[in-house]
């Protein structure tokens, strides 16, 4: 489903990704962990075509994302992305937030777009907030709104960039529950996360990022139970504290 080979990415002089190779198969849930600044967000931006790359290839659903003749807008329709910062569109109601892209990107008739939006909002537990504006939602609700908004495009895979790190602890659970629900439904996902318990529980595999490379990647039991890399051991012991 997602095939990344030999990916290099720098911001000006700063080399952030230094040769990433990664395959995510259909229905797989991959968690990405690693210390701040190791390039986790950057990887997701590259997959979504939001950042240009310097070398290598990213293939999503048989389409080379960074090929010059690729229509990024149509590639992105197959990929849902949820960001670290809440970024609901403040000038649209909850329902309009979700219905907008189906209407103007997928060009669905208005009634159908609204129907899909409502369905997805119920799915994430926001069925009673349809006509509210995002400013009336809590952080956790805004993140669930972002998830519903991405799902309304019926993506083939989802990219989560620390969807819970900006939330108050008591709101983390509801968002993780929503992501868990998607995992159970068989959605292909890459989740960058700081929640080790969550990574351990929902992922098929976990990748540990260190200074722009995948230092270790394995099933969660092995990766957390018997970490091989020294850096990973250090990282895990720091996180546990």
């Amino acid at each position: 489903m997602i095939k990344i080979s030999n990916l290099y990415k720098s911001y000006d002089d700063l080399e952030v990704l230094k040769g990433i190779n990664l395959n995510v198969s259909k229905g797989e849930v991959l968690s990405v962990i690693g210390s701040s600044g190791s390039g986790k967000s950057t990887l997701l931006y590259c997959i979504n075509g939001l950042e240009p790359i310097q070398q290598g290839q990213i293939i999503v659903d048989d389409i080379d994302v960074h090929a010059s003749d690729t229509n990024l807008n149509s590639v992105r329709q197959n990929m849902g992305m949820v960001f670290q910062q809440w970024n609901s569109f403040p000038h649209l109601t909850v329902l309009e937030n979700v219905a907008l892209a189906p209407r103007i990107v997928s060009k669905l008739p208005k009634a159908q777009a609204l129907e899909i939006a409502e369905k997805q909002l119920r799915h994430v537990g926001l069925g009673d907030k349809l006509s509210k504006y995002p400013s009336a939602l809590s952080g956790g609700q805004q993140q669930r709104l972002a998830i519903a908004r991405a799902l309304a495009m019926e993506p083939k895979c989802m990219l989560f960039d620390e969807a819970t790190s900006a939330l108050d602890p008591e709101l983390v659970g509801e968002v993780l529950d929503t992501i868990r629900l998607l995992a159970e439904e068989g959605m292909t996902m890459i989740c960058v996360t700081h929640e080790m318990g969550f990574a351990r529980e929902v992922s098929d595999r976990v990748a540990f990022f260190h200074e722009g490379v995948i230092e270790e990647i394995n099933q969660p039991e092995e990766l957390f139970g018997a970490p091989k890399s020294v850096y990973l051991q250090k990282f895990l012991s720091k996180v546990k504290k």
Binding site: L72, N73, R76, Q77, G80, Q85, N87, V105, A146, A150
Partner: peptide
């Protein structure tokens, strides 16, 4: 914020 642009693009707009 730039994140509004990113969010919008990521939806395929």
């Amino acid at each position: 914020p730039d994140t509004q642009i990113r969010a919008s693009l990521s939806l395929g707009m």
